[in-house]
Design a protein around this nucleic acid. Structure first.
Lengths: 347, 347
DNA sequence: ATGAAAGCGCTAACAG
DNA sequence: CTGTTAGCGCTTTCAT
């Protein structure tokens, strides 16, 4: 069935197809688009002509005519190479695909400047909706997008000043559970290692940690001595943990507030002579089971789907209510959190 | 600077802007697009009018007129949630972004059927070029894309029947190095655990393994007893490794042919009573250093960039030469590969 | 069941 | 420096 190709110049248009099939432009259009009121024979003739010509509807023209400005949803995340974000992207894509929409992705690397540029670019390219893991320092452009009628959905981090829907995790409760778990194992000096202090996720997790600590009767100031913040990559977290471990009164347990920080902590444990503290991390990760690391887990793929669903709803002209959908988190106990103070949980 | 919004009906068009600025349509167009030959005062007036109206160029119309069918490059990968693919995506995106193009992503989950659908969809949406990690069972649609003038670049897995550029790793050499490294440590019974046997990456890695084994004087049939294939996820790999370990004459060393398989093997080690075999894995991964796992490493982000570069070149009408760009790999020794037979490398 | 004409919003000639 | 005239490829009336 080798269809001989036409001499590859300009792509065939509907007019060409109509001509070849011996019908009018409109009939060809009807046939191609599967509209009713076309005789079966005609439809087949058109289909044949189209396939002979390697015809492909020009979606630009089609969409222009229909007044649709695009079929794309934009996703602006921190860093695609981070499994958390890429899982999110996967969830978004899966949901959109089922609706015939496509996903355009981009990474800000947590730079507000890049976020601004990316959002502007996406707006210029007329994405139908925007799903963002925002640095929150670029809300003007997001406001601008919203003003232009492009729905904005926040994921992972709730909207700051904008009135927009968001999908977030139960950060505070997760952190509280993690910390409580460590306290229950008999620890008092529980440290906290966290991401950028400006992030709401961070702040909520810190709050949850402090809440648990306070409830256990640990003085706030005392707890804060064991808090390290603004660690955005594994290398930085590693340094901070080494620092904590070399304290005169080092923590006997650690709550690490995201996947990269947890990995940095594990690297630090390996590099340190000291007994590894007990550990619970926020975010599950590959090999956490092998390493016996207890974590606060959740479902980033689902989170992406939920965000996509909100974006799709928003497409149907519903005004944003500024709701935050809070997804549950769960503790998985693997041993690292149950260790008694001073006892190494690694084999 | 609260710009009052127009009563949000239909978005403003260039005509509206021109009218408001008191200039002709074309002058407005020139001003908006930053073309030369516009008086500074005029330009400003137009800019003001545009911003007052919340005007946004209709890219559909603009592109249609210019005969451009889109600004998007499609990336079709196996699974976005796999760090290898998401890093690839990151590299592609970074490269495209610098050229003002956008990235549309999708996951096939290694299903040929899905790949076909996704490619067709992307072609229908008129992506400028396609970058694919192909299952290779869907080459007709890719051929179709190419016939329609859409350049196709293969990543990770070389083109099968198509004449198209590709970017791949030096799989055979990597596998050879890994196996050699294990043999050098005194191992003879070196096992191989691999992905789908139909994948060229798999076959090349198996070849490299067999080559090293043969050179070390191990009989081919003997080696094949220690080969397990078609393990595409960690769970499957885990089972296969447990199976190998329970052999009467189990391997004392293992070469695991990709990141998931390696992770599955590590899970198996943990679950097994037996002494863990020495190990070298293909693909580096988070915590490999913490676990002391030696790996064959490479740069997936760069791989994405290279693929994007080829795609961009192809956009300028250059006919595909069917070249394969082979990216180097490197062994990182972390201890797991140097263990003497029968000695556990884990602390 | 089919077709003719109009025009989506924009840019590319070609004037002035 | 600015404006006028076409028309990109398609879908939408409104005929027939």
């Amino acid at each position: 069935m080798t269809t001989e190709q036409p001499p590859r110049t300009t792509p065939a248009t509907l007019v060409d197809v109509a001509e070849r099939a011996g019908v009018s432009l409109k009939t060809a259009s009807r046939a191609i688009n599967g509209e009713p009121h076309v005789a079966e024979a005609t439809r087949e003739r058109v289909a044949k002509a189209a396939s002979d010509l390697g015809f492909q509807l020009n979606s630009m023209a089609s969409l222009l005519k229909r007044g649709i400005r695009s079929n794309f949803i934009g996703l602006v995340t921190g860093d695609l190479a981070n499994p958390f974000y890429s899982s999110l992207a996967k969830g978004v894509e899966r949901e959109l695909r089922s609706q015939g929409l496509q996903l355009v992705v981009s990474s800000t690397d947590e730079s507000a400047e890049r976020e601004r540029r990316l959002v502007e670019e996406m707006v210029a390219r007329q994405v139908r909706a925007l799903i963002v893991v925002s640095t929150l320092e670029a809300s003007e452009v997001l406001q601008g997008a919203q003003d232009r009628g492009i729905p904005v959905v926040f994921v992972d981090r709730p909207a700051d000043t904008l009135v927009a829907d968001s999908v977030v995790l139960d950060n505070r409760e997760g952190a509280r559970m993690a910390t409580q778990h460590l306290l229950d194992a008999g620890h008092r000096r529980v440290g906290f290692v966290g991401d950028f202090s400006r992030l709401p996720t961070h702040r909520q997790r810190l709050d949850g940690y402090l809440e648990a600590m306070a409830q256990a009767g640990v003085d706030g100031d005392e707890a804060r001595l064991l808090v390290r913040e603004d660690l955005h990559d594994a290398a930085g977290a590693r340094g901070a943990v080494l620092d904590l471990l070399s304290l005169p009164l080092p923590p006997t347990a650690l709550f690490t507030s995201n996947n990269r920080v947890t990995i940095g902590a594990l690297t630090a444990f390996r590099a340190s002579e000291a007994v590894a503290p007990a550990l619970v991390g926020f975010d599950d990760f590959d090999l956490a089971d092998v390493l016996g690391v207890s974590v606060i887990t959740h479902d980033p793929v689902d989170m992406g789907s939920q965000a996509a669903k909100l974006a799709l709803e928003a497409l149907t002209a519903r005004a944003p209510r500024g709701d935050a959908l809070v997804l549950p988190v769960r503790l998985i106990e693997r041993g690292s959190g149950e260790a008694a103070p001073g006892v190494d949980w690694r084999r």
